[in-house]
Design a protein around this nucleic acid. Structure first.
Lengths: 331, 331
DNA sequence: ATCGTGGCATGCAACGTTGCAAACTAGGTC
DNA sequence: GACCTAGTTTGCAACGTTGCATGCCACGAT
């Protein structure tokens, strides 16, 4: 193992000066910097993470806690978060909760608290009250909406506006009978609720009343549920001419159901999804979707954590990441 | 932050004694241990990971490097590895390479070397020669076969034997014309090659010759490829009465293709997969499969790393984890 | 010649922990 | 009573880094 001390001896300077070079301290003479850098390269010096962490009082680790890592949306988001955090000098631990409240709780309280400097948390089961009552000093930032907005930083996108845009796009394409697929009345899922709100708002702006039988409920956001819910919509005989699905996975399931029923997308039924997952770019037809700016979500979350770690103790913030409507073959 | 020093003052003992309690050192009087433990609980002491790592010369982190984390096999394996490693005091960083050689290389050389104590690596693109020429001191253990067995520890299962068992099970069920789905002649994939070998061996033992047109090639192990390859097998009209698929994902794709063709599983065509992924337990019909003992794979990998970190410098070992045939509805 | 200033380099101490070895205690043996 | 042993407790130093404060130098202004 090569230490600062070894580099210092090799370059003929003090340990402190090598440290200054490594940390890009501004007052280092160019000639000195070059000489030290040469020694660093020659010896293959790599900073000792443990010592640095101890001295700085940080571990350099962040936790990203998501319900499931094998869903395309979260794995995409996780990959981006890892990459962006890396550029920033952080290493990200990914934890999966399976939506289990006990596991969510354990990951937030204690357990990991000594290990990570901050937590990016996409809650599933935990209530706002419980999140609010957290005692831990480790800063945390939530991803996604939460009813009642607990006094914790969170990063969201404008789900109401995005849903409205999606439906207005369908209306603009001449669709007159648009269903929503993905409402979750049972679960208190705030994200689904906001997308439902946006859907109704678009209809209302267009002078249409919303109909309960045009809002298909689901119990999860998976493909199979999309298939099931769409099949039921089609089974009534009174079929819509467009469907706004609350996730791309649901939309891909729905797509299959439409095709199974012998109908065509988009000719007979137009589809719009939400999330912009990879699969939607390769489906037949390709999937129109709302694309949240996932890089921006990750950046904002990291920014909040950085600020909090720097001592910012202003009231909890709500940061909104942009999104855009990506029009493809299904609409 | 509560330190050993604070606990020591609270309990009226030396710092060292508190450390002994925390580390379960054997020579601590029961009464002392109880008193110290009470202070630990009262103050809510948690060891400082950075300081411990610095002193011990370890980070307590392992990297698990896999081609893709959102494939069911790897996400299952990763989840188990994380859990088992945790019981052992390790924290696991999961890294995805997307099978990209450059990314594999970067993760193995330097980059992370200061950060993790060991690497569990499931290679995809990197050649045996390149793996062998690795200079890094960080111990590494490979998952899966590799042609030419590089001088690096690896954990495998008996793919030849497992494939043979799978095919013999089909033969025992009275199937006479068994295809293999998943050969990968183009990619130098050793795992696929061994399963192909096992398939042929079973046929040979039964006195059958293998036929090139009964070995369906694929370009990936994904569901879509299984669907495509199976559809082509069926399109010839000369269809087999059973198919051994090299992965459950392939098998599930194949299952759908069989159903799409109006045939029944297992009546018309029996299917056997490989990997024992979750989905295979809920498909209709449920999927017969070879179940590698994933917990054991993780345990063996961790065991090797532990040994290497303890200074074991014996020649590279090949450790074989057990597997079993799980008979379900599809055969 | 003296002073002030800005650029640059450095020494010291400390972050919280554990390895090492020594010190102490009590109980038994010679 | 001296000696030994096993059990129990402890002090010291060190892991490699960075914050702080200070020292040194050259140069231009006084």
């Amino acid at each position: 193992m090569v230490r600062l001390r070894d580099v210092a001896a090799h370059a003929g300077v003090s340990i402190r000066t090598v440290s200054n070079v490594v940390n890009d301290f501004q007052y280092v003479a160019p000639s000195t910097r070059a000489r030290v850098q040469a020694s660093i390269d020659a010896l293959g010096y790599r900073p000792n993470v443990a010592a640095r962490n101890l001295r700085r009082g940080r571990t350099g680790l962040l936790a990203l806690v998501v319900p499931e890592i094998d869903s395309p949306y979260f794995s995409d988001l996780a990959a981006r978060t890892v990459r962006i955090a890396e550029d920033d000098g952080w290493t990200v631990l990914i934890d999966q909760t399976d939506g289990d409240a006990g596991r969510e709780r354990r990951l937030l309280h204690g357990e990991r608290s000594q290990l990570v400097d901050g937590v990016i948390f996409s809650p599933w089961s935990m209530s706002a009250e419980e999140l609010a009552s957290r005692q831990d000093a480790t800063p945390i930032v939530l991803l996604g909406e939460h009813a009642g907005a607990p006094p914790v930083d969170h990063v969201v996108i404008d789900n109401v506006g995005a849903a409205q845009e999606a439906v207005e796009h369908l209306l603009a394409g001449g669709r007159a009978d648009i269903a929503a697929l993905g409402v979750q009345p049972a679960l208190g899922n705030e994200t689904a609720h906001q997308r439902q709100l946006g859907y109704r708002r678009a209809l209302s702006v267009a002078g249409q009343a919303w109909r309960a039988d045009r809002e298909a409920p689901v119990t999860s956001l998976h493909r199979a549920e999309g298939h099931r819910a769409m099949s039921e919509l089609l089974a009534t005989g009174d079929r819509p001419d467009a469907v706004f699905c609350f996730s791309d996975q649901l939309a891909l399931g729905a797509l299959r159901a439409v095709v199974d029923a012998g109908l065509r997308v988009p000719e007979d039924i137009a589809l719009v999804g939400f999330d912009d997952i990879e699969d939607g770019r390769y489906s037949i037809p390709t999937l129109t979707t709302i694309a949240p700016d996932k890089d921006r979500i990750a950046e904002l979350a990291l920014q909040v954590l950085r600020d909090r770690l720097a001592g910012d103790d202003s009231p909890a913030r709500v940061l909104t990441a942009p999104h855009r409507l990506v029009i493809r073959g299904s609409s």
